[in-house]
C-alpha cells in the first residue's frame, strides 16, 4: 500500500470559495430539478399568462395607458418582477426550511468540506439563475399579446438575476430565522405580499400616496420592475443607476444576514 499521498500533501482546500463546494451543491440542485422541472416550468409559464389575461384584458378594458405605456405592456413587464420575486423567495424559504429541519441535508453537506457561506452562495446562485430565466416568460408570453420590446430586453435576465439573488437570500434568511414552518405566514403576509403590491407592478407607484411612494423606494421589487421596464423598451433614465445600486445593496445585505443566521442555526 502506498503511503505517498498523505492528507497534508493534498491540494490545500483553503480558498474562501471552493469550486468543489459549488459543484456539489449544484449537482444536488440539478438532480432535484430533473425530477421537478415539469411542474415548475408549468407554473412559471401559466402564471404570467393568467396575470396577463386577467389584468391585461380585464383591467385593460378600463385602463388604456399606465406609466406612459400601453397598460398591457405595463403589466407584462410588472409580472416579470413578480415572477422574479416568487420564483426565488418561495423555493428559498420552503426548500431551505425542509433541508435544514426535515431532511438534514445541510448537516450532511457541512460534514463534508463545505462551509456555510459556500452552501448559501451555491444555493443562491442556483435560485437566482433559475428565477432569471423563468421571469423572462412573461415577456415571451407578452409577445403574443402584442408586446414589442427593444433589443435592450436582453438585459432583463441580468436585472432579474440580481433581484432574485436578493429575494432568494431573503428567503434563505427567513428559512433559517423562523422557529417553525407556521411562522412563514408572518413572512408571506407581512413582507412578501406588501412588497408585491407596493412596487408599481400592476399600477404605477407614482399614483400612490406620498408615504407609500417612500415605501416603494425601500422595496427592491420596485427597483427591479423599474429597471425591467426601462430595459424592455430601451427607455433608460438617470435614476436607473440608483435602481441597480439599490438591488445590489439589497442582495449584499441579504447575503450577510442569511449567512450569519444559517451559520448560527447549523453550527452549535
Amino acid at each position: 500500500m502506498s503511503t505517498a499521498g498523505t492528507a497534508r500533501d493534498r491540494p490545500a482546500p483553503l480558498r474562501r470559495f471552493e469550486p468543489a463546494a459549488f459543484a456539489g451543491v449544484w449537482r444536488h440542485e440539478i438532480a432535484l430539478f430533473k425530477r421537478y422541472y415539469r411542474p415548475q416550468t408549468f407554473a412559471s409559464m401559466a402564471e404570467p399568462t393568467f396575470f396577463l389575461l386577467a389584468f391585461g384584458y380585464g383591467f385593460g378594458s378600463l385602463v388604456a395607458m399606465a406609466g406612459g405605456m400601453r397598460y398591457l405592456d405595463f403589466v407584462a413587464t410588472g409580472v416579470v418582477g413578480t415572477a422574479a420575486l416568487f420564483t426565488s423567495v418561495f423555493p428559498a424559504m420552503f426548500s431551505g426550511y425542509s433541508r435544514r429541519v426535515y431532511q438534514h441535508t445541510y448537516d450532511a453537506f457541512l460534514a463534508a468540506p463545505v462551509d456555510v457561506h459556500e452552501l448559501v452562495a451555491g444555493e443562491a446562485l442556483w435560485i437566482a439563475g433559475k428565477a432569471a430565466l423563468y421571469s423572462c416568460t412573461p415577456v415571451v408570453v407578452g409577445l403574443f399579446f402584442g408586446l414589442r420590446p427593444s433589443p435592450w430586453v436582453l438585459l432583463v435576465p441580468l436585472v432579474t438575476f440580481l433581484s432574485a439573488a436578493g429575494f432568494g437570500l431573503f428567503g434563505t434568511w427567513a428559512a433559517a430565522a423562523v422557529p417553525s414552518i407556521n411562522s412563514f405566514d408572518y413572512v408571506i403576509t407581512g413582507v412578501v405580499t406588501p412588497a408585491f403590491l407596493v412596487a408599481g407592478t400592476f399600477f404605477p407607484a407614482s399614483g400612490l400616496p406620498g408615504w407609500a411612494r417612500y415605501l416603494a423606494q425601500a422595496n427592491p421589487l420596485y427597483h427591479c420592475v423599474e429597471l425591467v421596464r426601462h430595459a424592455a423598451f430601451g427607455a433608460w433614465r438617470p435614476p436607473d443607476a440608483w435602481h441597480a445600486a439599490a438591488l445590489a445593496l439589497f442582495a449584499a445585505w441579504m447575503w450577510t444576514i442569511a449567512v450569519r443566521r444559517l451559520r448560527r442555526r447549523l453550527i452549535d
Binding site: P13, E18, A21, G24, R27, L32, R35, A108, P113
Partner: peptide, 26 residues
C-alpha cells in the same frame, strides 16, 4: 462521516446521492 441521524436525500437515487458527495469530496 456516518451520522447518527440519516441525512440522505430521499428524493434522489442512490447514485445521485453519491455523485453529490463525490464532488464535495473533490
Amino acid at each position: 462521516v456516518v451520522p447518527q441521524q440519516d441525512d440522505l436525500d430521499e428524493e434522489l437515487t442512490v447514485r445521485e446521492n453519491l455523485e453529490i458527495f463525490a464532488r464535495l469530496y473533490r
